[in-house]
Design a protein around this nucleic acid. Structure first.
Lengths: 213, 213
DNA sequence: CCTACCGATCGGTAGG
DNA sequence: CCTACCGATCGGTAGG
């Protein structure tokens, strides 16, 4: 046990602990939380199940950390995307792009985040659900703003927001880096589709260099 | 055991068997297949777990039947929607409407269908996966046809199809009959959004009476 | 439809 | 990091 770091209360991501969480991430995403046993996780690391408890305190703790961290990260990247401009059309494009890019890059995490809510015990399930509401509210609010400004046209900002979010979630189900479509292709085209959903009629000037990594 | 019906090989949906499957449907949708025990299903019917085996042969069999039937039903309703007209724009609208309506009406079934693929054992998992590919191919093919005809405009029929399908799946996650939006509202607006995704610029004449039940 | 029971597996602990 | 082991629960069967 390294003495260097202050004992930040079970907050030493001890490299080996990261391995365990990494293996769990893959298995939870593939087979589901209840479909994965601690023995499965251990086997992936060529260990016996009891050894895992040197690095994590419980199976449920792994799930909780993944879900809470993932929602916080999503909120962060989308908030920062929106903060980057004050043009509402561009804000929605960038928010949608950030959303879908995160779902392409962190497939396992978001799959768990979307599928395993019932497997997350209280009180954390409530906390995560609250973060999720906050997240979708950002998109709804953005679209409502665009409608008020007259740059968006949609009967229901709520349905449009849900549509945009759900499309992005779908990417986590089929995207693979070796597929025919690159991450940037997908991200950009989903940005287009998001704008189409709210009635932005293309032909908008391609503002900024949005090809970035 | 009723003697009336020919022994159609485990095909007597004996009323009580329907109850069991109904209870399982609700629980699998809420907690997931692995998160639901036979004891849970029995308790919902005020029975003991072993009694269930008079009506179903195994837990896995319930899952298999739900998933196979659901995919076949989806294929059927969308095929029939497409067969109803030969105008490609209208075909896509009606296919999208049928898709989303099914997802609103059969929330539990489609949630299981989308979430529990890994819990379905072979060979049925392969069969269901094949049906799913067939299903999405219908949408992709429809959009490709529209692009060739010049009535749709999209860079990637595949992404557009995935977007449309995924939006509809999302409905099964939040729709409730007592919500502010009626099933018909949602269905019609998703039809609009589907057409927007493929670049149909509104203002299309409202062909046929699409308010039907 | 039940009770009684099966072997297997679960998450987790003890103790080194 | 391991072996040995815990009580609880799993899906399912026997037998009535």
């Amino acid at each position: 046990m390294p003495k260097k770091e202050a004992a930040t209360k079970a907050r030493a991501p001890s490299a080996r602990s990261i391995d365990v969480r990494e293996a769990a991430l893959t298995l939870f995403a593939e087979r589901g939380y209840h479909g994965t046993s601690m023995k499965d996780i251990a086997a992936a690391l060529q260990l016996r199940a009891p050894s895992l408890y040197n690095h994590v305190s419980a199976k449920q703790e792994i799930l909780r950390d993944v879900m809470v961290d993932t929602m916080n990260n999503l909120l962060k990247v989308v908030r920062s995307a929106i903060a980057g401009t004050d043009d509402t059309v561009l804000q929605l494009r960038r928010a949608a792009e950030a959303h879908v890019r995160y779902h392409a890059r962190h497939k396992r995490e978001v799959r768990i985040g979307n599928y395993e809510i019932p497997a997350l015990e209280q009180p954390h399930r409530g906390a995560v659900t609250k973060l999720r509401r906050e997240y979708s509210r950002m998109f709804v609010g953005l679209i409502e703003k665009g409608v008020e400004e007259g740059v968006f046209d949609t009967r229901s900002p709520l349905l449009a927001a849900y549509g945009i979010l759900q499309m992005g979630i779908g990417v986590s189900m089929w995207y693979t880096p070796d597929g025919p479509l690159s991450e940037d292709d997908i991200v950009f085209q989903y940005g287009d589709m998001a704008l189409r959903l709210v009635g932005v009629t293309e032909a908008e000037p391609r503002v900024g260099r949005r090809r970035a990594k």
